[in-house]
Design a protein around this nucleic acid. Structure first.
Lengths: 126, 126
DNA sequence: CAGAATCCCAGTGGATACTG
DNA sequence: CAGTATCCACTGGGATTCTG
């Protein structure tokens, strides 16, 4: 098997479907808070747990914790224990995470441009 | 800054959070099949239900139906009944839908560039 | 401060079978 | 051909409480 082919870099279940990376990316960015967390870290720089929580606003500890764990697993966020007593942790973006910047901003821009229509329509139904 | 800017076009629940459109967009793109459907329509042009189903691959009728309905509600996809007997429907992208093009392709590109590492890691865990 | 532990609900997604 | 109709399993997200 040749390693020079790009197709072998995709997960097996992709099986020649060129849209596969889209679902994969969507499952990342589709989580309610994931893109927001990355965005906050992009804008505000590295910060601690509660700081991040307040900065996001409206997220519970559990969900933030879960999200961060997931983002860490996916190597988008870096978790660094700064001090043990009292516990202080610092969250920052990895290079992977920072590479999402343009995508996230494009998501924001698209949402700003196109989503009020959808909102209006939902109101009309309700 | 002027008040005639984008901020007043955002949903109420955004309440000055500039990341709000991100969540909104994420909830769109986060549905498992939505971005894929849009992508297929971008690449393959307008098509019928079963054609689309085969083109996507691995999606059930119900899920495709649900997804299309949702995409229609959000005015991303156009549903046009071509003939009554036998029933023939044509799905195409609205301008709204087409405006997702760059975003979707960027998602694909990002996924292709950055997701194999995550996959490797998941394998390592499993 | 930074979370872990529980509990719980709604929403998605999937399998299968049926229909106009 | 283009869907509905069920039923079900899973999980993401939220509220609340507890802890080192």
């Amino acid at each position: 098997m040749t390693d020079t082919d790009a197709s072998n870099r995709l997960p097996v279940w992709c099986a020649g479907k060129d849209w596969c990376p889209i679902t994969a990316t969507a499952s990342l960015l589709g989580k309610k808070w994931h893109p927001v967390i990355v965005h906050r870290l992009l804008e505000g720089g590295p910060m601690g747990f509660n700081e991040l929580k307040a900065d996001v606003g409206g997220i519970s500890s559990k969900v933030l914790s879960d999200s961060l764990e997931d983002l860490e697993d996916k190597q988008l966020v870096n978790r660094e224990i700064v001090s043990e007593k009292p516990v202080r942790v610092n969250y920052s973006l990895t290079e992977h995470g920072e590479s999402l910047e343009s995508l996230i901003f494009e998501m924001r821009d698209w949402g700003m441009e196109h989503l009020d229509a959808a909102e209006e329509q939902e109101e009309a139904i309700a």
